[in-house]
Design a protein around this nucleic acid. Structure first.
Lengths: 187, 187
DNA sequence: GTCTATACGAAGATAGAC
DNA sequence: GTCTATCTTCGTATAGAC
């Protein structure tokens, strides 16, 4: 088992980040939550907590990218719907306990390195989405703007709906986003 | 000076929340940042840190509402523009150091009381905005959806642009939002 | 790779003097 | 109202045994 407990710690960090923020994603909590071995933390993450969080950001970021990769050659409406559905299911599957783990890092960022790592993930999501929307029928400008809006508004809507423990705000946003996509296509 | 240092502490909490998150908004940091007296914290806030943060949420929330109140009887486009401008100036005036203090609480929330307090603020912003958009020319449904989208996407865009230390994402979102408002009006 | 033990700092909170 | 302890808990981090 070379890196099984290592992976568990990173996954645990993602979950704790999403549910209770950067401060709660402490070694002790991660160990308690995952059952990962206490003594090997600094063996796996010699860079300490910052390294663990950095890897959590990267992994959470690329997990979402993989979901986007499955949307190749879909209509722009479908791309938007599926992106929105991904965030909706984060809220419902966790009963409003989880938000975006990466957003949680940015609002509590100690280090500049972590901030720019999170920034890169947002950039990647946006550019990947933009590409998909473009191939799904939007022109280049509309694709870029709608991609940025999708990422920003889903991040915001998830945080808000999580706090409100209700999907109401999220669904209003989702409806408007789909209207926007349709309008953007008929330009 | 009945409650001058009290106010200073709350304002300091808002600023620290916005710049470095809930964990950094500690008594020691607030005292250092504001020069408020160390010995009177629990005199002013017998409920401890949770009370201080709760008051910070309420104050930050109502400061934004006051800005909205100045937009009575403006066109929907103007309402949206001004709401967006408020968030843009948070980013530029702080050189990307500050985000939304209330969002920072929600992503790091320990207590349910604080979460629901934040939730109430988001609700208030959205309903106030919806009212203004309705009076500014949108029909009721479009006003409600656009209000939710404005709040969510500004929250998200501010967090993202802050992390990226660039207005690029924010401006893409802002452009698309103004397009949306125009489309919503011509329904 | 995993463990225990330990050092160190910082946080929230309380008590009591002024 | 404000100050100075002081207590307790919890976080990161290191050293060294197994």
């Amino acid at each position: 088992m070379p890196r099984l407990s290592r992976e568990k710690m990173i996954e645990g960090a993602i979950k704790l980040l999403a549910m209770r923020g950067l401060h709660a994603a402490s070694f002790s909590e991660i160990i308690e939550a995952t059952g990962a071995p206490r003594g090997s933390i600094y063996h796996h993450f010699p860079g300490g907590k910052d390294q663990l969080i950095a890897e959590a950001i990267d992994l959470a970021g690329s997990q979402a990218v993989e979901l986007l990769n499955a949307l190749e050659d879909q209509a722009a409406e479908t791309v938007a719907e599926q992106f929105i559905a991904m965030w909706r299911s984060l809220l419902t599957a966790s009963a409003y306990q989880a938000g975006c783990s990466i957003l949680a890092v940015t609002t509590a960022s100690g280090s500049d390195a972590l901030l720019s790592r999170a920034a890169a993930v947002f950039r990647e999501w946006s550019s990947r989405l933009s590409e998909l929307l473009y191939r799904g029928g939007l022109d280049e400008d509309n694709a870029r703007r709608m991609a940025a809006l999708l990422v920003a508004s889903c991040e915001g809507a998830v945080a808000i709906s999580r706090a409100q423990k209700s999907l109401d705000s999220f669904e209003l946003v989702a409806e408007q986003l789909l209207i926007d996509i349709k309008n953007a296509r008929s330009n």
